[in-house]
């Protein structure tokens, strides 16, 4: 099948790097909501929401409404905002057997990774005490450096 003629303005990859074209139609958002980012259909600036008590109140109410938890305390962090409710049910096309096998596989992988992590940290501990063969030990001997602590979750 033949295609119609190429566009009047030929675009190249360079176009992508150029600043976005200025909208020719005046948008409503900048006019009605100065807190909102003006370019395109973008996200509300979280900073501006936090700074505006009325917007913040509205945001918290909508957040509670979306989660179906009218009594929930307001979120205190971005992580809190998107944390999924433990009660959320996720329907899918996977069968019970597929899900069970997947769960088993992931759980085994978690066990393996935990063992490997422990072993890796053990090796790092050794390194922290290493005295290089080619560098004379300074006087007095420095305190052994400990590896940075890592957050770990039980599998």
């Amino acid at each position: 099948m033949s295609e119609p003629a190429a566009p009047k303005k030929k675009r190249s990859a360079k176009t992508v790097e150029a600043p976005p074209a200025k909208p020719r139609r005046a948008l409503l958002a900048p006019e009605l909501n100065p807190a909102r980012a003006v370019e395109g259909v973008a996200r509300m600036s979280l900073k501006d929401v936090v700074a505006d008590p009325a917007l913040r109140k509205m945001g918290v109410e909508l957040w509670r409404q979306m989660r179906g938890t009218p009594e929930a305390p307001p979120p205190t962090s971005v992580e809190d905002l998107w944390k999924q409710l433990p009660s959320a049910r996720l329907n899918s096309s996977s069968t019970a057997d597929e899900i069970d096998r997947y769960r088993e596989r992931l759980s085994f992988r978690a066990t393996m990774l935990e063992a490997l992590l422990e072993e890796t940290l053990h090796e790092l501990d050794l390194l922290a005490r290493a005295v290089p063969a080619d560098v004379p030990e300074p006087e007095p001997a420095p305190e052994p450096e400990k590896p940075k602590s890592r957050k770990r979750k039980a599998a």
């Binding site: 958002a29 009605l32 909501n33 807190a35 909102r36 259909v41 996200r43 509300m44 505006d52």
Partner: peptide, 8 residues
Amino acid sequence: FMLGSVDR
């Protein structure tokens, strides 16, 4: 709200 469709 996230998309800023708010009349302020």
